[in-house]
């Protein structure tokens, strides 16, 4: 079975303080799909993402990546397969230089010498950041940081890319650059975002979470046209679908 398939089956998660963050969540994502997980603050998006590479383990239910269930004994393989790009790039870029940061994952996987160098350079080239290799991460702009954070994950050749708010804090140019970059990736992608226009551009399928439950799962455009559903889940139509406020729809 391909590693690119992700199956979440009746996933439930209860935090130690008793908060039930996810209730019976079931999603199946197949090879090459680009799926957005959207929802209001506190809907359970981050908790869901944390289950995809084993940072959190289910209270009940299962998460499977390909043929592997996510569990303590499969963490190493799961984490190579599912690349996680964090919400804040400063959490992800902790090494003294961009090069070392991108090399961190492959080195942990045992790469060295020319193989390592090729892998790091390929990843940086993919995000158009090869020229930043020698720079310390705190000298980068927000857009550069985001691209480098993606490279740190790409260098491990993941099958599935998981991104938490990838467009957050980017200026319009950097945001567009990121969207174009992500469109070109052939990986299965799971994206959480409050930027619904970015979702519209990037993901053909959308899952709406509300109160820890899946409220809707379907083609992005259809979901964004369901105004009642969006309102109920404390969401709004993306601006590009709202029509012009002066000339009307």
């Amino acid at each position: 079975m391909s590693h690119h398939i992700l199956e979440i089956d009746r996933l439930r998660h209860v935090y130690p303080d008793g908060t039930e963050a996810l209730r019976e969540v079931s999603i199946r994502i197949v090879h090459g799909e680009s799926v957005a997980v959207i929802g209001a603050n506190g809907a359970g998006k981050s908790t869901l993402l944390a289950h995809l590479n084993g940072h959190l383990l289910p209270t009940s239910g299962t998460v499977r990546v390909g043929h592997l269930p996510v569990g303590r004994d499969t963490l190493a393989e799961i984490r190579r397969t599912v690349g996680m790009v964090f919400h804040d790039p400063d959490d992800q870029l902790f090494m003294p230089t961009v090069y070392e940061d991108v090399a961190f994952g492959p080195m942990n996987l045992g790469l060295s010498g020319e193989d390592l160098e090729r892998c790091v350079k390929d990843a940086l080239r993919q995000v158009d950041a090869l020229h930043l290799a020698g720079k310390p991460p705190y000298h980068l702009s927000a857009g550069e940081k985001r691209r480098v954070a993606i490279a740190t994950v790409l260098s491990m050749s993941p099958d599935i890319l998981v991104m938490d708010e990838p467009g957050n804090g980017l200026d319009p140019y950097a945001r567009r650059q990121l969207i174009n970059l992500l469109k070109d990736f052939k990986h299965s992608k799971i994206v959480t975002s409050h930027d619904l226009d970015l979702v519209l551009d990037l993901c053909e399928r959308t899952v709406v979470l509300s109160g820890g439950e899946v409220r809707a799962d379907g083609p992005t455009r259809e979901i964004f046209q369901d105004e009642a559903l969006l309102k109920e889940c404390r969401l709004e139509k993306p601006l590009s679908m709202q029509g012009c406020p002066i000339c009307g729809p």
Partner: peptide, 23 residues
């Protein structure tokens, strides 16, 4: 909290408690 998130991001990239040696 940031330290926890950083640790998560290190684990996500195969960190097993020791930093890999460079050449």
């Amino acid at each position: 909290q940031r330290a926890e998130r950083m640790h998560m991001s290190m684990l996500a990239r195969g960190f097993s408690g020791t930093f890999p040696e460079q050449v």
